[in-house]
Simulated assay, not measured.
Amino acid sequence: MSDTNPLPAGRVRNTALICLAVAAGMLGLAYAAVPLYNLFCTITGFGGTPMLASGPATKVLDRTLTIRFDANVAPNLRWRFTPETPSIKVKVGETQTVTYKIQNTGDAPATAMATYNVLPEIAGSHFMKLECFCFQENTLRAGETMEAAVVFFIDPAIADDPGMADVHDITLSYTYFPSKNGKTLDASAKQ
């Protein structure tokens, strides 16, 4: 006969609770990953995410950059989206406003939200937005057109960033996606 000592019931219960807690924690982290990543990008400018500024720059430098504007629409959204100009020259620290024209070319109302980024990605932490149409959903009736603006400046701290010394052009890119309650919908989702 073999001598077997069954595990005490308390030990089995504790092991099961630990396994359950680890599984719940992993599930929670999976759900939190995207919002935490978005928060990280918003705070640091990582991945070309423009920063949100609370006020204009305190100084304007002589350095001039070309800012290009890229406007896109997801294939499942029947909107036309164009900037008033394809590019502008701007002094570092100077507040600028650029207007976009947005038109619903479909035959039904549509709600959409713009995602955005900056290229080169390293410039994201220096691209400061004061106001932007991209902060909320926009709903347009069939055939309706609206104008919307982005107000921004390039942070004078760019002059102290050695990685930005050879950057002369920055592209601000937007893409409109169908959305509902502030969340963009999957490309295959119906409106």
Results as ranks from 00 to 15, higher is better:
Lys101Pro: 00
Thr105Met: 04
Glu121Ile: 03
Lys190Asn: 04
Val12Asp: 05
Thr85Lys: 15
Leu140Glu: 00
Leu130Cys: 09
Thr111Phe: 04
Val150Ser: 05
Ile122Tyr: 05
Pro50Asp: 10
Val92Met: 01
Ala189Val: 05
Arg63Ser: 09
Asp155Asn: 13
Glu94Val: 00
Gln136Asn: 14
Leu77Arg: 07
Glu84Ala: 13
Cys41Met: 02
Gly47Cys: 02
Thr184Asn: 11
Ile88Asp: 08
Val151Tyr: 03
Gly143Gln: 10
Ala112Trp: 05
Thr49Asp: 00
Asp3Ile: 01
Arg78Trp: 01
Arg11Gln: 14
Val22Lys: 02
Arg68Asn: 12
Leu119Thr: 15
Arg78Asp: 03
Leu185Met: 13
Ile18Leu: 10
Thr171His: 05
Ala53Ile: 09
Phe46Gln: 06
Lys101Ala: 07
Ala149Tyr: 10
Thr95Leu: 07
Tyr37Cys: 03
Ala159Val: 06
Asp62Glu: 15
Ala149Thr: 14
Asn38Thr: 00
Lys129Thr: 02
Arg68Ala: 07
Leu140Cys: 12
Ala32Pro: 07
Val34Pro: 06
Arg68Ile: 06
Gly25Gln: 02
Ile88Arg: 15
Arg141Gly: 12
Asn72Phe: 06
Ala32Glu: 06
Met128Ser: 08
Thr97Tyr: 01
Thr145Tyr: 01
Thr85Asn: 11
Ala23Phe: 11
Phe69Gln: 09
Ala30Gln: 13
Leu20Cys: 14
Ala159Pro: 09
Gly143Arg: 02
Phe152Met: 08
Asn104Arg: 05
Cys132Ala: 15
Glu147Trp: 12
Ala108Leu: 04
Ala24Gln: 06
Ile122Met: 11
Arg13Ala: 14
Val60Asp: 05
Leu119Lys: 13
Met146Gly: 10
Thr145Arg: 11
Val118Asp: 06
Met1Asp: 09
Ala165Gln: 15
Val98Gly: 03
Lys91Trp: 00
Ile102Ala: 10
Asp155Pro: 10
Pro120Trp: 07
Ile43Lys: 14
Tyr37Asn: 14
Asp186Cys: 00
Pro120Gly: 04
Pro120Ala: 12
Trp79Ala: 02
Pro178Trp: 03
Ser179Glu: 05
Gln103Val: 08
Leu17Gly: 09
Leu185Ser: 03
Lys101Trp: 00
Pro75Glu: 05
Pro8Cys: 01
Glu147Lys: 15
Tyr31Lys: 14
Lys190Trp: 03
Ala53Ser: 13
Arg13Pro: 03
Phe135Gly: 09
Tyr37Pro: 02
Cys134Trp: 06
Ala112Cys: 10
Asn117Ile: 04
Ala114Asp: 06
Ala32Trp: 06
